[in-house]
Amino acid sequence: MNIICTHNLTKTYSHKDGTIDAIKDITLDVEKGCFVTITGPSGSGKTTLLLTLAGLIRPTSGSFSFLEQDLTKVHDSELAKFRRRNVGFIMQSFALIPYLTCIQNVMLPLALIKTSNQKQIEEAKSVLETVGLGKRLNHLPRELSAGQQQRVAIARAMVNSPSIIFADEPTGNLDPLLSVEILDFLKEINQKNNITVIMVTHSPVAADYGTVKIHLDNGEIKSIN
């Protein structure tokens, strides 16, 4: 079963010096449960593709759907609803809210889907324990190391039991050892919880984790294997 399908997905940025085709005619089916890695040179459109699939960027043309639901032209709030229910995000820069503690950051996605406070605390705690931060619940992000911050971000991405996690260079700010730790973790989520992972990466080591490896160049798919 395909979790994500795209057809001729294209994103063109217009700029005063001309237009840039960030991604061009991407046609792609992602099967549920896959670990997809996207590689390619800088500026090849990896992030653009990822954010478009996640419903954060509107494609210029083409279409994409999530679990057979066409999301190409739905209302903004519909996309937001899709994200809060089905999607987890892990970003290179962690994207944590600086004044919220670990547990509050992790509770946030649950708050959006109107979970009771009690349940929010329970679930956030349990996920943070899973990522090994059970003792850091009330720390602020700045009081944590980079690897720990990224684990908070992973906890946040997992907490609403998404069907898919989008990761944009999740190990880009981490040293090789920590990178492996995070990657193993993603692999584990992918396999144990059957959460589809789509990960953009520069590193060949990270790319090796993929069960489906997409290589982009100049906004186009060069290879899938």
């Binding site: 903004d76 709030s77 609803k81 809060r84 229910r85 994207a95 809210i97 959006l112 946040r156």
Partner: peptide, 16 residues
């Protein structure tokens, strides 16, 4: 801007 972007990313509505 960044925080609001994060909130939007994880699915907060504009109205929220």
């Amino acid at each position: 801007r960044k925080e609001i972007g994060i909130l939007r990313m994880i699915g907060t509505y504009k109205s929220e």
